[in-house]
Simulated assay, not measured.
Amino acid sequence: MAVKETLETLKEKMNSNPEGIQGLNTTYQFDLTGTDEGIYQIKFEDGQVEYVLGETYEPKCTLALSDANFLKLVAGKLNPTMAFMGGKLKIKGEMGLALKLQNVLKNYQ
């Protein structure tokens, strides 16, 4: 499954069952390399999620990784801490938000 389809599915899951994202008001940016290379943003606001292509919003946390590792991350098949330590994942911005994202994704796997 490609990145766009994965994000669309994730958005639908989160918006139809927003308990796991309550209180999260921030924007994450994913700088992806690989086949689906590009900049993707996920914005959480008031229990709703939207995703956009490109730099539309000011991200509080940016994660740089390959598209393949992004798909593994969303599916729960990539340990973000190990990926970060191994150089497969780079994080800019608020590190605490990266940890929060891991917990949010677990709610929707």
Rank of each mutant, 00 (worst) to 15 (best):
M1L: 05
A2Y: 01
A2M: 10
V3I: 07
T6F: 00
L7M: 08
L7P: 02
E8F: 07
T9R: 15
E12L: 14
E12D: 15
K13N: 12
K13G: 06
M14W: 12
S16R: 14
N17H: 14
E19D: 14
E19Q: 13
E19V: 13
G20W: 05
Q22R: 11
G23L: 09
L24N: 12
T26H: 06
T27Y: 02
T27E: 02
Y28N: 01
Y28D: 03
Q29S: 11
Q29R: 10
F30E: 00
F30C: 01
D31V: 02
D31I: 01
T33S: 15
T33F: 06
T35P: 03
T35E: 11
E37W: 01
I42M: 11
K43C: 11
F44I: 10
F44Q: 13
E45R: 12
E45T: 10
D46G: 09
D46C: 05
Q48I: 14
V49P: 03
V49L: 09
L53H: 04
L53D: 01
T56C: 03
P59I: 09
C61A: 06
T62C: 01
T62F: 02
A64S: 15
S66L: 07
D67M: 05
L71D: 04
K72S: 05
G76C: 05
L78A: 04
N79Q: 11
T81A: 11
T81K: 04
M82V: 11
A83S: 08
F84K: 02
F84P: 00
G87L: 11
K88H: 12
L89C: 09
L89K: 08
L89S: 08
K90S: 10
I91T: 10
K92M: 04
K92R: 09
E94M: 14
E94T: 14
M95L: 15
M95D: 07
G96H: 10
G96R: 14
L97M: 10
L97R: 08
A98D: 05
L99C: 01
K100V: 08
K100Y: 01
V104A: 13
K106D: 06
Y108M: 08
Y108C: 14
Q109H: 09
Q109I: 06
Q109L: 13
Q109T: 12
